[in-house]
C-alpha cells in the first residue's frame, strides 16, 4: 500500500493498463502535451508517445465516435471528456451509438471502451460547469457507469473499466482529485464492477451514497456516532449496474435508509434507489426513507448560495436524526 491522491490513483491505473496492453490508448482535449486540464494524464505522453496519447480537436461527439470506431476495430480506447458537462455534446454518440451498437447489431461486435469524465459541483464554476449528470447515464441501458469515492476505488475501478469489454462511463469527482488514501501497489489489483462497498458498518440506519457524497456521509456518520447513532455507509461505486442486493441487505439489517445524491432530485438516482427499497423492504422499514439531493436549480456561482444547492454533512446529519426520531 502507498498513500496517494485520487488524481494519482487514476493516473497510475492509466499507466499500468497502457503498460499491460498495447491496444489501450488515451484521447481527449489537452490530454497529451498539456497533460489534462486536471493533470490526470501527467507523464503519459512522455512514456507512451504520440500514437497512444492523442490530443483531439474540441469535438466531443467525434471524440466518442472515434473511440467507438477504434473499439470496433480492435483497440481499447480511454477517452477523456474534459468535464461531464461536455458529455452533453456527445450524447448522440454515447446514447444513440455506443450504448446501442452491440445490441442492434445482434451481438456481432463489442465496444471495449472507457470514457473518463470529471464532474460534480462545488468549485464555483457556474451553471454550465457544475453539473452532476450521473442519472442521465444510468438511465440508458447498454453501458456501465462507475463513480469512485476513494483513491483505492478509483484505481481499482478504472482498471476494471479498461479491461472490461463493455462501454464504461467513468466519472471522477473534481473535488476529490486532491483527496488522499492508501492504494494497493499490486498492478493486478482491481475492484469488480457492480459491487457496492460498506465503507462504514453500522446498525441503526443505512446511508446510501456515492463518490463525494460517500465522503460526506462518512464525515456525518463520525459525528452521529458521538450522539450514539450507528450509521452504515454504503458506497455504491457502480451506479450501473446498481448493486441492488447490497442496498437491500443493508436496509434489511438497519431498517432505515437515507439516500444521498449530488444530482438533481427530480427523477434522480435517489428516487430510483428509494423506490427499490420501498418495493422490496416496505414490511421491515422502521421509518420512511429520506432523500438528500442537489437542489432542482441551475447551479449559481456565488459561494454563499452555491453551497445550499449541494448536499452538506449537516444535511445528512439532520436527515439521519429525522429518520431516527420518526419525524419526517
Amino acid at each position: 500500500m502507498s498513500e496517494m491522491t485520487y488524481r494519482d490513483a487514476v493516473n497510475l491505473a492509466l499507466k499500468e493498463e497502457m503498460r499491460r496492453d498495447a491496444s489501450v490508448f488515451v484521447l481527449g482535449e489537452d490530454v497529451a502535451l498539456y497533460e489534462g486540464s486536471f493533470k490526470v494524464t501527467r507523464g503519459l505522453l512522455a512514456e507512451f508517445g504520440e500514437e497512444r496519447v492523442k490530443d483531439t480537436p474540441i469535438s466531443e461527439n467525434t471524440i466518442i465516435g472515434v473511440s467507438i470506431g477504434a473499439a470496433m476495430g480492435g483497440l481499447r480506447p480511454v477517452a477523456e471528456l474534459m468535464t461531464v458537462n461536455f458529455a452533453l455534446l456527445a450524447m448522440d454518440q454515447i446514447v444513440n451509438h455506443m450504448a446501442k451498437i452491440r445490441s442492434m447489431f445482434g451481438g456481432q461486435t463489442f465496444l471495449p471502451m472507457t470514457i473518463r469524465m470529471p464532474g460534480g459541483g462545488g468549485s464555483q464554476l457556474g451553471a454550465q460547469h457544475s453539473q452532476s449528470l450521473e442519472t442521465y447515464f444510468m438511465h440508458c441501458p447498454g453501458m456501465y457507469v462507475l463513480y469512485p469515492a476513494t483513491p483505492a476505488d478509483a484505481k481499482g475501478l478504472l482498471k476494471s473499466a479498461i479491461r472490461n469489454n463493455n462501454p464504461v462511463i467513468f466519472l471522477e469527482h473534481e473535488l476529490l482529485y486532491n483527496s488522499k488514501g492508501e492504494v494497493p501497489e499490486d498492478p493486478e489489483y482491481s475492484i469488480p464492477i457492480g459491487k457496492a462497498d460498506v465503507k462504514r458498518p453500522g446498525e441503526d440506519v443505512t446511508i446510501v451514497a456515492y463518490a463525494r457524497m460517500s465522503i460526506l456521509a462518512l464525515e456525518a456518520a463520525e459525528e452521529l456516532a458521538k450522539d450514539g447513532i450507528s450509521c452504515e455507509v454504503l458506497d455504491l461505486r457502480s451506479l450501473a449496474p446498481l448493486d441492488e442486493a447490497a442496498i437491500l441487505a443493508s436496509v434489511r439489517k438497519t431498517g432505515r435508509a437515507v439516500v444521498i445524491e449530488e444530482c438533481w432530485r427530480t427523477c434522480g438516482l435517489g428516487a430510483e434507489i428509494t423506490s427499490r427499497i420501498y418495493e422490496n423492504c416496505f414490511d421491515i422499514l422502521k421509518a420512511p426513507v429520506k432523500r438528500i439531493s442537489g437542489l432542482d436549480v441551475p447551479m449559481p456561482y456565488s459561494r454563499k448560495i452555491e453551497k445550499i444547492c449541494i448536499p452538506q454533512p449537516v444535511n445528512i446529519r439532520q436527515a439521519v436524526m429525522d429518520v431516527m426520531s420518526g419525524e419526517y
Binding site: T62, G65, V66, I68, G69, A70, G73, L75, H97
Partner: peptide, 12 residues
C-alpha cells in the same frame, strides 16, 4: 452518426 465511427476504424 457513421462519420466519426469511420474515422475511429481508420485510426484502429
Amino acid at each position: 452518426g457513421q462519420f466519426p465511427i469511420s474515422v475511429g476504424l481508420a485510426f484502429a
